[in-house]
Amino acid sequence: MRDLSLHVLDLVQNSLAAQATEIEITIDEDLDRNLLTLCVRDNGRGMSKEQCAAALDPFYTTRTTRKVGLGLPLIKAAAERAGGQLQIQSQLGLGTTVTATFQHDHLDRAPIGDMSLTLMSIIALNEECQFTYRHRRGKREFAISSAELRQELEGLPLDHPQITAWLREYVREQEKSLEV
């Protein structure tokens, strides 16, 4: 995966596959502490301790019998390459929180990438799921939720091409204004 926005899209797929109905995405750029934290929390079916450990182990052998099982090992490698780590907290039946940390200014830290395209993809294509996104950078913050979009849209579908175009542009502008 080229950048963090693609990892986010991939982590959200895990949550959707675990039947989550609420998914919370947080990017926190703590510039004072030189720390970037990426977090995806869901209320899906969760994992046991054993499943958690197995999910992170790239040498987990039963994986070869499945199609692929690369998502979590990939983001773990991306975090560790940039002086950070990956943590999974999960409880069966309650949900899962995946947290990746990165040294913010590390040369090998992947760029955040295009969050407008990632958010458009998950919000437009998963009408039945509630998403919350929050991006903090220093003292600035941008947040958006599918609930507030739905409220404005009064039943108009989120995959309407005019809405997805608007959403991409809106998120792009908001993300950009965090930078200045």
Partner: peptide, 28 residues
């Protein structure tokens, strides 16, 4: 298809193109 391999192969950009083409042709 939005599995890991789909995403790595560019499914997100494919979706963007789909939405843009639907908008261009007014296929709402």
């Amino acid at each position: 298809g939005m599995g890991t391999c789909g995403i790595a192969a560019g499914a997100r950009e494919t979706l963007a193109a789909v939405m843009q083409e639907l908008e261009r042709l007014h296929l709402y």
